[in-house]
């Protein structure tokens, strides 16, 4: 579904990604793990069009998307839920969600999608008319995810959903991500919480210093010595 080939991206003069290649199959959860500064967010931003790669290609459903602008990529069915939520703080929960359906493809059915999102996150329905800034951290993350889903994505990129959440909520977030996959949405998940991530996802890529270090199914990766030592602390 998504194919990344020999991708290199620069931040100014500094190269942040070196020759990264991987692919995601439909209806699976691909996890992207790595330490701080390994290039995870850079990779996501390159896929969603916020950054331009200097070389390599990205194709989504067989079409090249590298070099397209972010709104075109959203329109094609890629939704990027950014790190740190980035909500419209002075808009209500409902307005935030409706704005999420801004893409033309999603705008027509936004009422219907809204119902689905409320079913997934009942807490948001209760707080419908509250301003986003007054929500708790967990609710804000729910809202960010809900807003991302409002564009009816085929591929949903989720950056650090568990960031700053209580352990119980983290589990809940992972449950929801699983249920999204079961609805047929492909997911690219970035996480620092390696154990949970590898237990939830189907496949994973490990980035180290901007390079792809390991790639494989989660069960295989969990068995590898290097992964155990460096990421699980065993």
């Amino acid at each position: 579904m998504l194919e990344v080939k020999n991708l290199s991206t620069f931040y100014g003069k500094i190269q942040a990604l070196w020759d990264v290649s991987f692919s995601i199959k439909e209806s699976e959860i691909m996890a992207l793990v790595g330490a701080n500064g390994a290039g995870k967010t850079t990779l996501l931003n390159t896929i969603s069009g916020l950054l331009r790669p200097t070389s390599g290609s990205i194709s989504f459903l067989g079409k090249r998307i590298d070099g397209l602008s972010p709104h075109t990529i959203v329109e094609m069915g890629v939704s990027h839920i950014p790190e740190g939520r980035k909500l419209f703080a002075d808009m209500s929960v409902r307005e935030n969600l409706e704005m999420g359906a801004y893409a033309n493809r999603a705008w027509k059915n936004k009422g219907e999608t809204l119902e689905q999102v409320y079913r997934l996150f009942p807490a948001l329905k209760e707080r419908e008319s509250q301003l986003a800034r007054t929500l708790s951290g967990g609710e804000q993350q729910m809202l960010a995810m809900g807003r991302g889903l409002m564009s009816r994505p085929k591929l949903c990129i989720i950056d650090e959903p568990s960031n700053g959440l209580a352990p119980k909520l983290v589990l809940e977030v992972f449950q929801i991500i699983k249920s999204l996959r079961d609805q047929g949405i492909t997911i690219l998940l970035v996480e620092q919480n390696v154990r949970h991530t590898l237990e939830t996802a189907d496949c994973a890529c490990i980035l180290e210093n901007g390079r792809l270090a390991l790639e494989g199914t989660c069960s295989a990766l969990l068995e590898m010595e290097h992964v155990k030592k460096a990421y699980l602390g065993l």
Partner: peptide, 16 residues
Amino acid sequence: QSIGENEEAAVHIGIN
């Protein structure tokens, strides 16, 4: 309005 609220988020939800 959403650009005024949070321009980065506006990019993410697909606004040109």
